[in-house]
Every structure is written in structure tokens, then in C-alpha cells.
């Protein structure tokens, strides 16, 4: 399936993956993540039960300290 991940088109095998699986595939290892699926907030406890499909707009953004 093709999705838009962080503004870029990316292809994954299979046609439905959980947010958790995508985080593992893309090795987002940081603890502090903001996840938005089609502009809707996805909380940490929902990563494994939220599924991403063809054409979805997914944002996975690291929050790092500094300001």
C-alpha cells in the first residue's frame, strides 16, 4: 500500500498495518512521538489498535528537547 508519511509518499507491503507496525518498520526509536492519522491524534495506547490503509496521511514526529 502507498501512504503519505510525513509529507512523503511511502510504500509498504500489505494493505493494512497498525501504527505500531509502521513505527517498528521505520525504526522510530524515540520515546516522545506525536502521531496523527488523517489529522486525528493517535495516542500511545492506541498505536496497536489503529490501522493505516492505502492513501492515508500519517504523521509520526519526534519530539526532542531544546528550546
Amino acid at each position: 500500500m502507498k501512504i503519505i508519511l510525513n509529507n512523503r509518499e511511502e510504500e509498504f507491503s500489505g494493505n493494512c498495518l497498525s501504527v505500531d507496525e509502521i513505527i517498528k518498520i521505520k525504526s522510530f526509536v524515540f520515546k516522545m512521538l506525536v502521531v496523527r492519522l488523517n489529522s486525528k491524534s493517535v495516542k500511545k495506547e492506541e498505536y496497536s489498535s489503529t490501522y493505516v490503509k492505502e492513501g492515508d496521511d500519517l504523521k509520526i514526529i519526534h519530539l526532542v528537547s531544546g528550546g
Binding site: N6, R36, S39, D57, K59, H62, V64, S65
Partner: peptide, 23 residues
């Protein structure tokens, strides 16, 4: 800047502050 609905996050998303990488 990454935009998602009502949220915009600006920055490089990776350079974290530390003792040897100060702001």
C-alpha cells in the same frame, strides 16, 4: 514545518539538546 490539522511542528525533528550539543 510539518502540518497536521490544527497542529504545526517546526524544527528538524532530531537535533536534541545535550551537554555537547547545546542550544
Amino acid at each position: 514545518s510539518i502540518k497536521s490539522g490544527n497542529l504545526i511542528i517546526c524544527g528538524d525533528g532530531e537535533s536534541e539538546v545535550s551537554e555537547d550539543n547545546p542550544t
